[in-house]
């Protein structure tokens, strides 16, 4: 399973083009991956401004790396995982410099999609807050697996940890989310002690 090439046809084609014409195809790399990188940065990191800077920083690092590598190496790149690794590393470096305690990160609920009812916005805000309460390792694992949709093999390669460890982080993260969700909703109706018939 680890040997399987999980690259999408679009990424395979993009890697080939990057190998032969970096300047002519780099914009397509940005357009293809900016939404998912922004989502990962926003949901693992903090506010929109920081996320935007982080994504730009990650793409600049990617561009420099691509400019220095031989075409054969670029053609074989798993772009999705590789860009994710660069983004996470850039985020770690930045957090180290800024020394922001993760517990104090303010989570941005995100722009409201035009046709969204208010309730949906509230729901996104709730889930963004719940994610913020997870440990950094659990939060990253849950975001990569269930917000971005990477496979466990891809995540393990991207964060440099064994697949089993990543799975454990996701499972514990999901359990913690459920507990926190229940706590934030309060005790369910009909289960309050005084209303339980004797």
């Amino acid at each position: 399973m680890g040997m399987m090439d999980e690259r999408s046809p679009a990424d395979v084609q993009l890697a080939t083009r990057l190998a032969t014409d970096l300047d002519g195809s780099f914009e397509d790399l940005v357009l293809a991956h900016q939404d998912r990188l922004f989502t990962i940065a926003l949901r693992t990191g903090g506010d929109r401004h920081d996320a935007e800077e982080l994504v730009q920083d990650a793409f600049v690092r990617a561009y420099r790396a691509l400019g220095a590598w031989p075409p054969a190496r670029i053609r074989e790149l798993r772009l999705r995982g590789w860009l994710t690794t660069i983004l996470l590393n850039a985020g770690r470096n930045r957090a180290r410099v800024k020394r922001v305690p993760t517990a104090e990160l303010v989570f941005d609920p995100g722009a409201e999609p035009a046709a969204d009812p208010l309730a949906r916005r509230d729901e996104r805000e709730t889930w963004a807050r719940l994610l913020a309460g997870l440990s950094p390792a659990q939060r990253t694992a849950v975001v990569l697996r269930h917000v971005d949709g990477m496979s466990y093999a891809e995540i393990a390669a991207a964060v440099g940890r064994p697949e089993g460890t990543v799975k454990a982080h996701v499972h514990r993260g999901l359990a913690a989310l459920r507990t926190a969700l229940l706590a934030s909703e309060g005790p369910p109706e009909g289960l309050r002690a005084e209303e339980i018939p004797a």
């Binding site: 914009e27 940005v30 357009l31 900016q34 939404d35 998912r36 990188l37 922004f38 989502t39 926003l42 949901r43 929109r48 935007e52 994504v55 730009q56 793409f59 600049v60 995100g110 722009a111 949906r120 729901e123 996104r124 889930w127 963004a128 994610l131 849950v142 975001v143 269930h146 917000v147 971005d148 949709g149």
Partner: peptide, 16 residues
């Protein structure tokens, strides 16, 4: 969780 995906802000690609 899938609903937490967020499009990159306009202008990010150009700035990059």
């Amino acid at each position: 969780l899938a609903g937490l995906r967020e499009p990159a802000p306009p202008g990010l690609a150009h700035r990059t």
